[in-house]
Write a protein that binds this DNA or RNA. Sequence first.
DNA 1: TTGTATGCGTTATCAG
DNA 2: CTGATAACGCATACAA
Lengths: 334, 334
Amino acid sequence: MKSVTIADVAKHSKVSKSTVSQYLNQRYEYMGEETKARIQDAIKQLGYRPNIVARSLKQKSTTTIGVIVANILHAFSTQVIRAIEDVCHDYDFHTIVCNADDDPEKEKKYIEMLHAKQVDGIILFPTGGNIELLRTMKDNHFPLVLMDRLIDNVELPSVLLDNEKASSLAVEHFVEKGYSRLGIMTTSIIPNVTPRIKRVEGFKKTLKQLNLPVNDNYIKSLDLKHFEQALEDMLSLEEPPEAILAGNDLALMEMLTFIKKKKLRIPEDVALIGIDEVSFASFYNPSLTTVAQPAFKMGKKAAELLLNKIQKKDKDEPGKIYEFQPKLIERESC
Amino acid sequence: MKSVTIADVAKHSKVSKSTVSQYLNQRYEYMGEETKARIQDAIKQLGYRPNIVARSLKQKSTTTIGVIVANILHAFSTQVIRAIEDVCHDYDFHTIVCNADDDPEKEKKYIEMLHAKQVDGIILFPTGGNIELLRTMKDNHFPLVLMDRLIDNVELPSVLLDNEKASSLAVEHFVEKGYSRLGIMTTSIIPNVTPRIKRVEGFKKTLKQLNLPVNDNYIKSLDLKHFEQALEDMLSLEEPPEAILAGNDLALMEMLTFIKKKKLRIPEDVALIGIDEVSFASFYNPSLTTVAQPAFKMGKKAAELLLNKIQKKDKDEPGKIYEFQPKLIERESC
DNA sequence: TTGTATGCGTTATCAG
DNA sequence: CTGATAACGCATACAA
């Protein structure tokens, strides 16, 4: 790649570099029509493209933000990313997406890498580790917005789902449909990974509010690879649950796999609701009742918060929490 | 963000900038143990992080590649992206992913943007437009690898599926299972979008080889939003097809939606095979027979080709085509 | 073994 | 209205 620089354009159009730079930055108020035309010609002829790296170095801004998701396998993550990219596109910002794979070490590595790459800000789905690092970044006024999970004691703007509400919508729907022995399965409970915790809490709380018994045998939080065994156990109880809530999309898929394997019928043998909308919900047999997160809105909000922060247009409300409401989509599985 | 530079480290450790630079680049062969220690201390104390932007400007390399997919909605795209990121990670390269949304204009914009950002190379799922631009880039020796779709008359390394084979595997399987009135539905045929073309060609060719009739009423290529009507028509024929091949994952989902709506049974009313593996194939009711692309291997290959090209380690085989073999996964839908 | 000087491509300041 | 010159932070040839 022979690269043509601003100097080449200057030479070609017989003006100085600075004049060309002015032109490029739309400051042609006091510029001769003829000069303008000559520069434009030169640019076209030489096929000149500004070098963004050089510009970034000078301006200390890369018009790029980083997005670090805890786990890209969740449909929610990809939906949010899509929304963030849309907003960034409108603001002429670019996005670098990283997947921490639920590993705080990787998360740390990516934060440092994005930092070194001089991104103007980061949207983070925190793994739950690296709290000190987050605090340091906040103290250094590095633009940072948290997504999906709440980190206590660090006052960072956070975009979250009302996770208790998600469970309560599901429980209420189960009850309306006449089920009373209700269970919930989520992936492992890890400190600081608040959605799972809140969903279980919301589940229990709603049960109590409705004066239904809370049976701990119906409440499981474990690694996906132990789901099969746990379901086997749960459904072999003398009084098995009649309906189970899947804590997220991956949990739901694991449960569907088990149910198919055991040739169980939904909802006759076990009714099902999944938190998170999945691509196949509407045409699965039976179609799946889900509690959907407004992923797109949430991503949009996070991006806007961050971009405003970067452009210092925010009214600076440190640690403000933006909580979004889930929505139950009724289908055939319950 | 107060940023600490190499000069600060130099001052703090009482050596010159170049010495620090040496240290950073592991060139401490001829460096005093004590100097080394002092520098290390200073770096830690000041929390110094090299500025990658500045480094990139100097070295004319960003250790970043761009990936432009024609349409991110295809599961295949995301699988390939995942593989590319893995390989890049091993080589300490970063990835910027862009979605052209099947729009050549957007594709062009992204190519230019990535160019301006000085990425070291691009992996492109071509939309089919911008052929001249691709040729120019090739002529300028810009590292470029094509994925999924073949562009004629531009000698660029390309990673492809044997698309005819994909169809023929499906047709052969249909026939083995006793079906003879076979159909295929793909998204719209667009010039240069070779997979769809090849899949239809392979479909017809295999039919002929097996001495089965080719019925054009059973062969549809159209926009997803017209699938419903087309299926309605096709299945209302006096002699409707007994089995239909879905040309890709989105087509499959559209077909499943229709089939559910009409309460048809799979495979009794219509047998089904989908090209592309989908997340729900194994636990759908019935589970879905698919022709899977080795997406991971393909992404890996593309990344390796590009990185070798960037590092000039390739034996330079311009325009070489790397064709991968699809694999039929038999399940219940046929 | 370490330091000095220079340049990467751009923008910004300030003369002219 | 335009041009010279100095940064931005880093790497590298060349000196010392």
